[in-house]
C-alpha cells in the first residue's frame, strides 16, 4: 500500500488502513511519548489521544507524503500538553514562553536531543515513502523489516542479484540523502522548527477539543 493509498484509506475510515497506521505509525507515536519522559498510563493515554487526534484531523493533512512528520508533530504537541497538565497552576502564556525560550526547562536536555533525532527519523521515513519502489523496498528490507532478512532472502524477494545489493544500496542511500537535503532546503529542518513553536506550522491539524475535565489543555 502506498502512502497515498494509506492516507486515502484513513480518510475513508477503512479499518485495514487504521490497523496498518497503528502498526506502522504507532511506533512513532509511542517513541515520541517515551522520549518525552512519559510512561505507564500517561504514555498509553498520549498514544490513544494522538491516534484520536489523527482520526479527527486526517482530512486536514495536505501532503500525504509528510505523514510521519505530521504524526510526529501532532504527538509532540499533545505530549507537551500532557506534561503541562502536570503543572496546571502555570499560566498558559508563561508555559508557551518558557517552551519557546528555554525548552529544557520543560523537557529534559537529553530528551530534547532524542526528540530532535526522532523528528529526523520521521523525515527519513517520509523521504523513503517518496522513493521509487525498487529503492524503497530494498532499504526497508535492509533496515526496517523484522525479523531482519538475510541477503539471500532480499535477493530472492527483490529480484536483485546478490552482487548488486551493495551497489544498489549505495545508490539508494545517496538518493535518500538528496531527498533529505531537499527537505531541509524547504525549511523543515528540525532545529529551525524547534526554536519557533513547532505547533503553529502550516499543515498541523487544529486542536481537538477534549472533555477530560482538565483545565488549560487547549490553551
Amino acid at each position: 500500500m502506498t502512502r497515498e493509498q494509506l492516507v486515502a484509506g484513513l480518510k475513508a475510515g477503512e479499518e485495514s488502513a487504521w490497523r496498518l497506521f497503528i502498526q506502522d505509525y504507532g511506533r512513532m507515536i509511542y517513541a515520541v511519548a517515551t522520549r518525552l519522559g512519559l510512561a505507564g498510563p500517561e504514555r498509553d493515554d498520549l498514544f490513544q489521544e494522538a491516534c484520536l487526534s489523527v482520526l479527527e484531523s486526517i482530512h486536514t493533512l495536505r501532503h500525504p507524503r509528510r505523514l510521519a512528520s505530521w504524526v510526529y508533530i501532532v504527538t509532540y504537541r499533545l505530549g507537551i500538553d500532557a506534561i503541562r497538565r502536570r503543572r496546571p497552576e502555570a499560566p498558559v502564556e508563561d508555559w508557551a514562553v518558557l517552551l519557546e525560550s528555554n525548552p529544557t526547562a520543560v523537557i529534559e536536555p537529553t530528551a530534547l536531543g532524542d526528540l530532535e533525532r526522532l523528528e529526523e527519523i520521521a523525515q527519513v521515513l517520509d523521504c523513503l515513502a517518496e522513493m521509487d519502489q525498487r529503492c524503497r523496498s530494498l532499504l526497508q528490507a535492509l533496515y526496517l523489516e523484522e525479523p531482519r532478512p538475510t541477503y539471500e532472502e532480499i535477493s530472492r524477494h527483490q529480484g536483485i542479484p546478490m552482487g548488486s545489493i551493495g551497489p544498489t544500496r549505495a545508490r539508494c542511500l545517496e538518493k535518500l540523502g538528496n531527498l533529505l537535503q531537499d527537505l531541509s532546503g524547504e525549511g523543515a529542518k528540525p532545529s529551525s522548527r524547534r526554536r519557533g513553536h513547532p505547533l503553529s506550522e502550516a499543515g498541523v491539524p487544529p486542536r481537538v477539543s477534549r472533555r477530560r475535565g482538565r483545565s488549560g489543555h487547549d490553551g
Binding site: 497503528i22 502498526q23 504507532g26 511506533r27 512513532m28 507515536i29 509511542y30 517513541a31 517515551t34 498514544f47 533525532r117 529526523e120 527519523i121 523525515q123 527519513v124 521515513l125 523513503l128 532499504l139 535492509l142 533496515y143 526496517l144 523484522e146 549505495a170 542511500l173 545517496e174 535518500l176 540523502g177 538528496n178 533529505l180 537535503q181
Partner: peptide, 20 residues
C-alpha cells in the same frame, strides 16, 4: 557524498522503532 550516505544510513538504522 560520504556524509550524505552516512546520514541516511544512520537515520534508517535508528528508524526501527519499538512496536506498540
Amino acid at each position: 557524498l560520504a556524509a550524505s550516505i552516512k546520514r541516511s544510513a544512520d537515520l534508517l538504522a535508528e528508524a526501527r522503532l519499538s512496536s506498540v
